[in-house]
Structures are given as structure tokens and as C-alpha cells.
Write a protein that binds this DNA or RNA. Structure first.
Lengths: 146, 146
DNA sequence: CTGAATTACTTAACATGTTTAGCAATTGCA
DNA sequence: TGCAATTGCTAAACATGTTAAGTAATTCAG
């Protein structure tokens, strides 16, 4: 069973994709019940955890590009899950806050979402799961192209 | 250093995203020089490696959903990088093959692309890189929701 | 103090992701 | 044999990813 070029199997980019699909599938199913996409949920959670925060920082924490975030914030504001206002110090900036309806959606779904992740963690084995997280974080830190 | 909820740091979905961004950034830059997206490149490589193949199998190997693949194949056919014909046995199916211009694009970019992955592998350390691949593949196999 | 950078976001345009529908060819079973 | 599933792919609609441009507010050098 000789191994060819990094065909679909030993290819890191594909492996990362497949793994992500596996993990997110159930979570997406849960969130679609709440009428949220995975990204909207991520933004909502960041805003809730951090308190008042500006879009640039949200983008960083939620791993989104600003153009995507712009649209997502518009949607979340339409749905009245967040509120926005200009920063009084620096009027280029905004301050984003979670709204009551947003708090409620999080309260209604956080537990189930954490439970899904915990199941993954157990199915995979806690040690391997943690090792995987460490390796992923390391990859993110180390592979800085010149 | 107490650890909170799986905030942005120990969250597997986000870690997978960040890692993928880190790895794909340089590759995307390379491919954009050839006028290809990352997904188009993936499809092209699958078709080249496998020989004549149908869309369903391409989707599986390239980790794409069929609707995305439909559009990508249309683009690649427009650019004359692949050719398609109906399967004579089962006329629902297609047979996709790489075209000469497609072979050329691969010949022109494969080495540099493999080189980028090899750099990542070395920067991260070969052992950890392989361990990461194993863990990712394991995650893909093990976390089958009931 | 003033105009050239820079910063924080927004818009636009194109490609893909994701779900749901749809259509044609084929299978399976009564 | 006939017709209800099933299969393989496409279309459509909406959301995000990605890059490039654009805008307004701020900073900073001269």
C-alpha cells in the first residue's frame, strides 16, 4: 500500500476541512433551529463574553474578515440581537453590545452547544482532543511565512 | 491562569479555522497567480490524479458539496482546463477528464505548492505535523453522531 | 496648522458554502 | 411490466469568503 503524493488523505488542508465539517455538522443543525448561522453564533458569543467591543476585535476573536463581519452585524442588528453605536472618543469606531434577545438565544442554546463539543471530546478521547488543540494552536503560531 | 469557557482559544472549531487560514494563505497567493481558486485547484488535482472520474467521486475526494462542484466544473470547463461527457452506461453520470491546459497549470504550480506544504511541515516539526494529521483523520473517523 | 498617511469600517463583485427543490435516468419491487 | 423510490446532477436563494476600492475620521510629519 505505497503512498502517493499527498493525495486526498495525507493532505493537511483537506484533513482540516474534513475535521471541521465533522465537528460543525451537529452544531450547525442545532443553530439552524434557532435561525442562526454558525458565524452569527460565533459573533454573538464573542460579543456576549467580551461585553461592549468594536468590530475589529470581534473579527479577530471570531476569525472573520471585516467585510463578512460587516454583513453579519447588519443581520444581527436587524434581528435585534445586538445593538451598535458610534464610539464617542473615536468616531470611526463602533461599540457593539449584545441585546436582550441575543442574551436569550445564547441562554437557550449554549448548553446544548457545549454538550455537543463535549461529546466530540469524549468520543475522541480527552487526551487526544487536547493534544489536537495544542497542535492546532501551535500550527497557527509557528507557520508565519516570511 | 484559570481557563474559562472554550472561549476563542480552546475552541476546536475556531482552532481548525485559524490553522486552515495559516496553511492556505500562502497557497492561495500562489494559485491566484495562476488565476485559480483553492477549490478549483483541488478539483483539478483530483481529476488529474484519478483519471476519468465522475462528479460525485470528485466531490468526495475534494471535500466539496455537489452544488459547489457543479459551478466549479462549469468554470473549469469554460477555461478549458477539463472536459466532460455523459457516461454511456448510465446517462445520469458524467465523466470528467483533465484537458491539456489543465495538465499544464498543474505542471506549472505543483512543485511550488508541495514546497509550501513541506515548509509548513518543517517549521512545525515533522513529527508534530504527522501527529496532527493522524489526530485530524481520527477526528473525522470517530465523531460520527448517532 | 495642514495635507499626506493611516485607521476603521463599508461596498462591490465574484466565488464558494449550504439548504432546498427540481429534473432526468435508473432501480427496485409489487 | 409499471410505477414509486432512488440516484446523479443542476438550479436557485441566501449567507459567507476573499480581494479590491471607497469613505470618513484620525494621526502625524513638516
Amino acid at each position: 500500500m505505497t503512498r502517493m503524493m499527498p493525495s486526498t488523505d495525507r493532505s493537511l488542508p483537506i484533513a482540516l476541512l474534513r475535521a471541521r465539517e465533522r465537528v460543525m455538522g451537529p452544531i450547525r443543525a442545532l443553530l439552524s433551529g434557532a435561525g442562526l448561522t454558525e458565524q452569527q453564533w460565533r459573533v454573538l458569543r464573542v460579543v456576549q463574553e467580551s461585553g461592549p467591543i468594536d468590530p475589529t476585535q470581534i473579527a479577530d476573536k471570531a476569525c472573520l474578515l471585516l467585510p463578512s463581519l460587516t454583513r453579519i452585524l447588519q443581520k444581527l442588528e436587524e434581528k435585534q440581537l445586538i445593538s451598535r453605536e458610534r464610539d464617542t472618543e473615536d468616531r470611526r469606531r463602533q461599540v457593539v453590545q449584545i441585546a436582550p434577545a441575543g442574551e436569550k438565544i445564547i441562554a437557550d442554546n449554549l448548553e446544548a452547544s457545549l454538550e455537543l463539543m463535549e461529546q466530540t471530546r469524549l468520543k475522541m478521547g480527552v487526551e487526544r482532543y487536547e493534544a489536537l488543540l495544542d497542535l492546532l494552536n501551535e500550527l497557527d503560531r509557528i507557520d508565519l511565512p516570511e
